[in-house]
């Protein structure tokens, strides 16, 4: 994009801004739009991010490390990692299954399934959290039954995992559906015709052909699983040292006026975000390149006809 803007700006300057094409804006407008976008990005995105780190390190390295090594904070970090470690693999399996059946089969209710996959995106996380409370809370549908067997879901780790799985469900499936639709099922059929079983076909052919899309989905899914606040906040019960995840811990520390500690934990989440963005950009570039390569055959070499006589 930047390259385009630059080069067209140069051409219009060459033409003394007189013989512009109808669709081209004047250099002033162009400059104005670019500036607005840049200023907005810096003020609303870059500055807060820098501020997070500035605040986190306001008491130096030692203050930062002390804030993080607080036992309750450590427990929040561990819980977050545990929740992500459970919900991400689950969603990889669900996402693969959903994307597979949507991309490869035609069946009744397919549009409904696609809509349902998007449901977590369209529902407010708070509402999602409440749904689980209504289902599994003490006053909920399954509450008494669960309570009589001493199974705790709400205000415990299982509830947090459930809420996180729900919220992060669309990421893997959403990334895989277009990739799988674009590849079609020719390669799988080829593998079958060569004698491969369904499982081997999936392992050797399907999975490698969607690996970048899958990884992309996993990264996004993971980022959201670790960063989810609303739904988790409802079902966790905020028990310090037990059911606080990192985002909940940040809020609690902030409300206790412990800004440095709050920003220290926040800085970890910010680092995760930066890491995710980096990986995402790399994977997008990778996917695009693979796609372009697949589209274009090289020109035929000369001579074309192979010698088929040994």
């Amino acid at each position: 994009m930047a390259g385009n803007v630059k080069s067209s700006a140069r051409t219009s300057r060459d033409a003394n801004a007189k013989s512009q094409r109808g669709t081209e804006e004047s250099p002033f407008i162009k400059w104005l739009l670019v500036s607005i976008a840049m200023i907005f990005t810096i003020v609303f995105l870059l500055l807060p991010l820098v501020n997070v780190f500035a605040q986190a390190f306001s008491k130096g390295w030692s203050g930062y490390l002390t804030a993080l090594s607080d036992p309750d904070t450590m427990s929040a970090i561990k819980l977050t990692l545990l929740v992500a470690a459970i919900s991400v693999p689950l969603n990889v399996v669900f996402g693969l299954a959903a994307a597979w059946c949507i991309a490869k089969f035609n069946f009744r209710g397919k549009p409904l399934l696609i809509t349902l996959i998007d449901l977590p995106f369209s529902v407010s996380p708070v509402v999602a959290g409440l749904m689980f409370v209504v289902m599994f809370g003490l006053q909920g549908y399954f509450g008494p039954w669960l309570d009589s067997r001493d199974i705790k879901i709400i205000f415990a780790v299982p509830g947090i995992v459930l809420a996180t799985v729900f919220i992060t469900f669309p990421f893997v499936a959403r990334e895989l559906i277009p990739v799988m639709q674009a590849t079609g099922s020719d390669q799988e059929e080829a593998a079958l015709s060569l004698g491969a079983s369904g499982w081997k076909t999936f392992w050797y052919v399907t999975l490698p052909s969607v690996k970048w899309g899958l990884l992309y989905g996993v990264i996004l899914c993971n980022a959201r699983a670790m960063g989810e606040f609303g739904a988790v906040s409802i079902v966790s019960g905020h028990i310090t040292g037990q059911t606080d995840t990192m985002p909940l811990r940040v809020e609690k520390l902030y409300q206790e006026y412990n800004a440095t500690a709050a920003f220290a934990v926040a800085s970890l989440l910010a680092l995760l975000a930066l890491f995710t963005l980096g990986i995402k950009t790399f994977l997008e570039w990778k996917q695009e390149r693979d796609f372009e390569r697949a589209q274009h055959a090289l020109p035929e070499p000369d001579p074309i006809a192979p010698s088929s006589n040994p």
Partner: peptide, 13 residues
């Protein structure tokens, strides 16, 4: 059987 697809369907990986 040996089947050759119209799109060739080579395993691109």
């Amino acid at each position: 059987i040996g089947f050759v697809f119209q799109s060739y369907a080579l395993f691109k990986n």
